[in-house]
């Protein structure tokens, strides 16, 4: 799994549960190091081991942790570039949902070797759509759910998100849009002010 993903997992666990806990989890997972490098590649099972160790140590189901991870990478100020890159997908939350079809191509432009869950909008009407999520590792649909929840907040949309398996290894995520202008949402300007 790409270092960007592993690094996100690490930052999430560290920020949410403390450095001490993260160190314990990384030891329990047998990493042999404390820090993932965002731009290096790692064996797939390393990520699985970290998540399993975190689930053990924190006594929380892996699915819950993964959903929290999805929310964390969007809503945490330090990850603002990810939120911004996703906001480029569309001016409204509905536009954004439809842009998820192109996510793979967009990601490939930015980091060619990064492989993320593949999302396809399956059926939709004005206030409801279903996303099909496929990934080589199980459970990542829960991360997508967390991301969608945080992005809905970001756009100020009120939504109900439902997750289920399709029985064939993919995750089906249904998004019901109750109100697109429910809250103010976060501002998004195309241009970044010079930091």
């Amino acid at each position: 799994m790409h270092g960007l993903i592993n690094r996100s997992v690490q930052c999430f666990l560290r920020d949410a549960y403390g450095s001490e806990t993260w160190s314990e989890i990384s030891r329990a997972a047998g990493l042999g190091f404390d820090n993932f490098e965002a731009l290096l590649g790692y064996e797939d099972d390393l990520t699985d081991r970290v998540l399993a160790a975190a689930s053990d140590r924190l006594a929380k189901p892996v699915e819950v942790l993964m959903e929290d991870l999805g929310t964390y990478v969007i809503a945490t100020p330090g990850f603002d570039h990810l939120r911004r890159l996703l906001r480029f997908g569309g001016a409204s939350f509905v536009d954004f949902l439809h842009s998820l079809d192109d996510l793979e191509d967009r990601v490939r432009l930015a980091v060619p070797e990064l492989s993320l869950p593949r999302l396809a909008v399956q059926d939709f009407d004005a206030d409801r759509l279903t996303l099909c999520c496929r990934f080589e590792r199980p459970g990542w649909g829960h991360v997508v759910v967390g991301v969608l929840r945080a992005m809905a907040d970001d756009y100020g949309a009120l939504v109900v998100i439902d997750h289920r398996g399709d029985g064939a290894g993919a995750d089906l995520i249904t998004v019901e849009i109750l109100d697109t202008g429910f809250a103010q949402g976060k501002s998004f300007a195309l241009g970044v002010s010079a930091a």
Partner: peptide
Amino acid sequence: MLYLIEAKTAV
């Protein structure tokens, strides 16, 4: 283009 510039900067 702006998306790419931002993604490139982050990377």
